[in-house]
Simulated assay, not measured.
Amino acid sequence: MAASTAKGALTVDVASPDGSAVDHVVHQIRELIAQAGLKVGDSLPAERELCAQFNASRNTVREAMRILKAYGLVEVRPKVGATITDNRMSRAIELFSFATMEVSRKTFSDVQAFRDLLEVGSVERIFDRLCERDIEELHAINADLAGIHDLEEASEVDFAFHVRLISILDNTAILDVYKVMKPIILRIMLKGKTRRTFKTETFSEHEGVIEALANRDRLSFQYRLRTHLMTGFKYFNEEMEASA
């Protein structure tokens, strides 16, 4: 237990049974946000008020705010104070990006299998929700590959194609998960396609997927999409064996 003076008042930091005094204040602030029904853009009480309300020192409250900022839940600005924000998804994307700098053969296989589960495994719902606009926009995205020479830019277009395909499901949670995985998916696209061109093979594979969609051919869609997702694995294996 630590005691400190803030504006002449004695404050006592008491650790919760499950953590430190800072953890306790983080929990209290999150409860305050929920109980007060605060939304993105709303302001939290001033630092001095939080110290008094939670019987905590200024340093403890500041450290709690730093943690909440790292979580993407608050934004702290000079002379403005703390406001509610929601940058949790971008924080997750940053963490995922740093955590997966290298792509192993197993990572390649695991991620593509997960994408297969999301994209190929959702065939029934995709076809149930499919409309002409989806076909047109997929064609438009794929057409962008024709004029691209930069591999990284082409990977972005490839990713955009699959995001648009997933968006047919109209499921925000699935889209969020897919976007969190973007850094590793882009690395996989680059790793698996260094020996083939986006302008020919990838473009053609995408067109085959779109054609199956347009024809409402579920079996063809599954076959073409699954083949497209796993084609790069062959080149990935060749590259790994060559460097062994």
Rank of each mutant, 00 (worst) to 15 (best):
M1E: 10
A2V: 11
A2M: 05
A6G: 07
D13W: 02
S16F: 00
P17K: 14
H24L: 03
V25A: 00
V26E: 00
E31T: 12
I33D: 04
K39T: 12
L44P: 04
A46I: 10
E47P: 00
A52R: 11
F54R: 04
A56G: 04
A56K: 01
S57E: 13
T60F: 04
T60M: 05
M65K: 02
V74Y: 01
E75H: 06
T83E: 08
T85K: 09
N87T: 00
S90Q: 03
A92Q: 10
I93C: 01
I93M: 09
S97L: 02
M101E: 12
E102N: 10
R105C: 05
F108V: 00
D110T: 06
V111N: 07
L118E: 14
L118S: 07
E119N: 08
R129D: 00
E132F: 00
D134L: 04
A140P: 01
A140V: 03
I141A: 13
D144K: 15
A146M: 09
H149N: 11
D150L: 05
E152V: 02
E152K: 15
E153K: 14
E153H: 12
D158H: 11
R164I: 01
L165V: 03
I166V: 15
S167G: 08
T172V: 10
D176R: 01
D176H: 01
D176N: 09
Y178P: 02
I184R: 05
I184S: 06
L186C: 08
K193Q: 12
T197N: 11
H206V: 05
E207S: 06
E207F: 07
I210E: 06
E211W: 01
L213D: 06
N215S: 15
N215K: 15
R218K: 15
Q222I: 06
Y223Q: 10
R224L: 11
L225T: 00
L229D: 10
K234R: 12
E239N: 13
M240I: 05
E241G: 08
S243K: 14
A244T: 03
A244G: 11
